[in-house]
């Protein structure tokens, strides 16, 4: 297969161009959001949030149709309701936050699957869950651009507040930065980006585009700014590779992108010069040998 067949021919299709542009745009904002999720130890919470959007998206589709704004409104409602209900329950009952959030997101997710499978064909459900590259229309691309643009703009403007909110919230308060906007704003931004990534990634794997590049970058660098930039670059590279793979193999685009990003992550987890497994094993082995020598 020539380079032309591999890369250029696929990109001559409008849907591939739109899918690729949308994935690259969302990689940029996703790297930022994923970095915050990881540093605040909210990776699993973010995953649960992504799943809980399904009933809102499905309802909006059934009632209004598949315009991005309707989907966004449905997803925002479902996400906010799940977050609020679980926050309320964990505050007022003995259930802790993870349990109440876990319970609500499962209910929401099951409700969403029931809605989609009752209303549409089975094929539609698979597209919802795993992404479908043919589904990226011009309006979806516009939404991706808006989501990415807004995210990058807010991060650039509020970076000091974001760093302190993660790193040292009490100092953030004394510096006069308010915390309330952070949580609400972050939730809205995350939902916005998840909905924008829906067509390409699907509900189940959408967070992979955010989380994996950020986790890979986190294993590789020691500065916040570098981490954000690296995560964005990794996301763009991995999603491009994943889309091309999906085009050639017929694999759904969501899993193809996540697997490409996963390859980078596993490489970093093994080989990162400072935080990789191989280095940790090497250090442990050297230590043991040193101990044995002393014992002799």
């Amino acid at each position: 297969m020539s380079l032309h067949d591999l890369i250029i021919e696929p990109l001559s299709h409008g849907f591939m161009q739109r899918g690729l542009a949308s994935a690259v745009l969302l990689s940029i904002s996703g790297g930022l959001l994923g970095s915050v999720l990881i540093l605040r130890r909210m990776a699993l919470m973010g995953d649960a949030l992504a799943h809980s959007l399904l009933p809102g998206i499905a309802l909006a589709w059934l009632l209004v149709g598949r315009g991005p704004l309707a989907l966004l409104a449905g997803a925002l409602t479902a996400g906010l309701l799940t977050a609020l209900a679980s926050a309320l329950l964990s505050r007022l009952s003995r259930l802790k936050e993870d349990a109440s959030f876990g319970a609500f997101f499962l209910i929401a997710y099951a409700g969403g699957i029931a809605l989609v499978s009752q209303a549409g064909t089975r094929l539609d459900l698979l597209h919802f869950l795993f992404g479908h590259i043919l589904g990226v229309g011009p309006a979806d691309l516009a939404l991706a651009a808006a989501a990415a643009g807004l995210t990058v703009l807010l991060f650039a403007l509020l970076r000091r507040g974001i760093v302190l909110e993660i790193f040292d919230p009490v100092f953030a308060r004394t510096a006069g930065f308010r915390g309330g906007w952070f949580h609400a704003g972050f939730l809205v931004l995350a939902v916005l980006n998840l909905v924008a990534a829906l067509q390409t990634m699907g509900v189940i794997l959408a967070l992979g585009l955010f989380l994996l590049p950020a986790a890979t970058a986190y294993l590789w660098c020691d500065r916040f700014r570098t981490m954000l930039a690296l995560a964005a670059a990794l996301g763009a590279t991995g999603s491009t590779a994943g889309l091309l793979w999906s085009y050639h193999s017929g694999l759904a685009s969501g899993p193809a992108i996540v697997l490409s990003l996963g390859l980078g992550f596993i490489f970093a987890a093994l080989a990162s010069p400072r935080y990789g497994l191989l280095r940790a094993l090497h250090l442990a082995w050297r230590e043991r040998r040193a101990v044995r020598h002393t014992a002799d």
Binding site: L39, V163, I166, F167, D168, V170, F171, Y218, C221, D222, R223, F224, T226, M227
Partner: peptide, 12 residues
């Protein structure tokens, strides 16, 4: 702050 309250793995 108390040292225990800070995320020491923050890339900073």
């Amino acid at each position: 702050p108390q040292r225990a309250e800070v995320e020491w793995d923050f890339p900073v």
